[in-house]
């Protein structure tokens, strides 16, 4: 196989991967619906971040950290706090990532993970209000990929949710127009958890959690955020312009549902000891 350090891939490699898939096999011997090993280290930035997690998905790894700040609410939602996810594709993670302002890939990653968190109502933003129209909590979850071997979206989604679940911040109250810490530590008001699952289409086949080589030859991918009650709360088709039939989309949703319980259980297990 080639070295995959540039954005092109040889025809031989492309055909090899497609032929394997046609035979029902994957490069690393996984089933089509099988994730790579997921490991989560919760609370890796205990001294400075309010919540954090380092997630490994095979040879892909990302670290996510949560900062809780006090700020002013947006004019159109005076009684709501702010929840926001950002991501940066730092060149430390891959020879494919370059220095400079965020490109499409980084913006899509941040927005897709953000959508998964926001649309599922993960954090109860109304409970983040300190005084209506004056002060609210602003929760920032920032993602830094460390190693890129495919499927950054799922790794980031797992990391952000695990980091949010470990987040502890100081309660604030208003005194003479200023927000003052009461000293009491609060957990984030989490209402729901939706994890994103990404399925790649290669030819007529679907595989979950594609590694970098599979991503190179995929026709497209479909990312689905699935919450604990098996609702779909966000979808994103990307990673190429290949079309997908309704039948394949339905099949992909089935694969996401099949994995959602297992992944959620791994997250719950990782964050349960963080006090």
């Amino acid at each position: 196989m080639g070295d995959f350090s540039s954005k092109t891939i040889g025809h031989i490699d492309r055909e090899f991967i497609h032929d394997l898939i046609k035979k029902g096999e994957r490069l690393d011997g996984r089933e089509f619906g099988e994730y790579r090993e997921v490991t989560i280290e919760a609370n890796v930035v205990p001294a400075k971040a309010e919540g954090s997690a380092l997630v490994r998905l095979g040879d892909t790894s990302v670290v996510a950290g949560v900062k809780v700040l006090v700020g002013e609410p947006y004019a159109d939602s005076p009684n709501k706090g702010v929840m926001m996810v950002t991501a940066e594709l730092s060149p430390i993670a891959s020879p494919l990532f370059e220095l400079g302002p965020p490109k499409e890939g980084a913006i899509e990653l941040a927005r897709v993970v953000d959508r998964g968190v926001r649309e599922s109502g993960t954090v109860d933003v109304e409970a983040l209000c300190i005084e209506e129209g004056k002060k609210v909590f602003m929760v920032f979850a920032d993602v830094y990929p460390l190693e890129y071997d495919g499927n950054l979206i799922d790794a980031s989604s797992i990391a952000v949710n695990a980091a949010l679940m470990t987040t502890k911040y100081s309660e604030m109250k208003m005194e003479d127009g200023k927000a003052v810490a009461t000293g009491k530590m609060l957990k984030l008001p989490i209402k729901n958890i939706a994890i994103e699952h990404t399925v790649s289409k290669l030819g007529d086949s679907l595989v979950i959690d594609a590694n970098l080589r599979e991503e190179f030859v995929q026709d497209c991918r479909l990312t689905m955020a699935v919450d604990q009650n098996e609702n779909f709360t966000a979808l994103q088709k990307g990673g190429g312009s290949g079309p997908m039939s309704l039948d394949l989309v339905d099949q992909a949703m089935g694969m996401a549902l099949d994995s959602s319980k297992t992944i959620k259980a791994i997250i719950d297990e990782a964050v349960k000891d963080v006090e």
Binding site: V45, K48, A49, E50, S52, V63, G65, V66, K67, L69, T86, E88, S90, P91, L99, F140, D142, Y144
Partner: peptide
């Protein structure tokens, strides 16, 4: 050499 701090590495969130 590119030295960067993660936004969450310091007490106040560092601007990205």
């Amino acid at each position: 050499v590119v030295y960067r701090m993660a936004t969450f590495s310091v007490p106040d969130r560092k601007r990205p």
